[in-house]
């Protein structure tokens, strides 16, 4: 029975190293092969990346073979393409427009697809305010989409909405005059739609963070630049 065993003397006792039996040996080899096969299979499973084609891989359209029809089609397509390009250009804003990246709190003054000025702003906090003792709630999001500058006011007076009182734990006034507050909106306000504005702030240290109730806040210098560059009727794109 000790035919395969190797005896190694070691400080008074001997360690016997037995080579595995043929059946166990086969099993070990099988497991090893299986593991290698598994690794190879795993290596070949997933995604295979290659460079993007340098020419269009779209299938070629069916085109007329005779010269007369081909000429007519060419003329028709050229005219249509010109019209489509003109229509696209008409849709895209020309001149000055404003782009607001509300997640990263950046406002861009654009002119014909070129960034003229980048400003750090503050957009909606996304907070939900729940009124005490009632089911009323407000969500302070800045809406996404395209808006027009409806009006521009210097030294604007803020007509505080209900949530401004609720947030401060104050009773909502019955007299409309108690809602007016000056100085809060900074030097200028550009009115968009649905009560949203681009305006100044007293809390310039919070610029670059999402803290507002939905409006776009700017620091005094950037607000001045927007006031100077953006006329009434300009588009404001918020994303």
């Amino acid at each position: 029975m000790m035919d395969d065993a190797v005896s190694t003397p070691h400080r008074g006792f001997s360690v016997v190293v037995r080579p595995p039996r043929p059946r166990i040996r086969f099993g070990l080899i099988f497991l090893l092969v299986l593991a290698v096969a598994g690794v190879i299979a795993a290596k070949g499973t997933g995604y295979e990346y290659g460079p993007a084609p340098r020419v269009s891989s779209l299938p070629a359209p069916e085109l007329p073979k005779d010269a007369g029809t081909a000429r007519k089609l060419q003329s028709k397509l050229a005219t249509q393409n010109q019209k489509l390009e003109a229509a696209l250009n008409k849709l895209s804003p020309t001149g000055t427009y404003v782009v607001v990246d509300q997640t990263q709190n950046r406002l861009y003054i654009m002119n014909d697809d070129k960034i003229v000025r980048t400003a750090v702003c503050s957009a909606g906090s996304g907070m939900i305010l729940k009124a005490a003792g009632s089911s009323k709630k407000w969500v302070f999001d800045t809406p996404r989409g395209v808006f027009k500058v409806r009006n521009k006011i210097s030294n604007p007076i803020w007509k505080k909405p209900d949530w401004a009182f609720v947030e401060e734990g104050k009773t909502i006034p019955t007299n409309p005059e108690d809602r007016f507050e000056s100085g809060t909106l900074g030097k200028y306000a550009l009115y968009l739609e649905d009560g949203y504005m681009i305006h100044g702030t007293l809390y310039t240290r919070l610029l670059g963070r999402s803290v507002t109730h939905g409006c776009i806040r700017l620091g005094p210098e950037d607000l001045q630049a927007v006031w100077d560059a953006v006329p009434i009727g300009s588009s404001v794109f918020i994303f």
Binding site: G126, I128, V139, E167, G169, K170
Partner: peptide, 12 residues
């Protein structure tokens, strides 16, 4: 989103 419960309204 952070939810904020407004304090009970008072005059001050």
């Amino acid at each position: 989103r952070v939810e904020m419960q407004a304090p009970p309204p008072t005059k001050e």
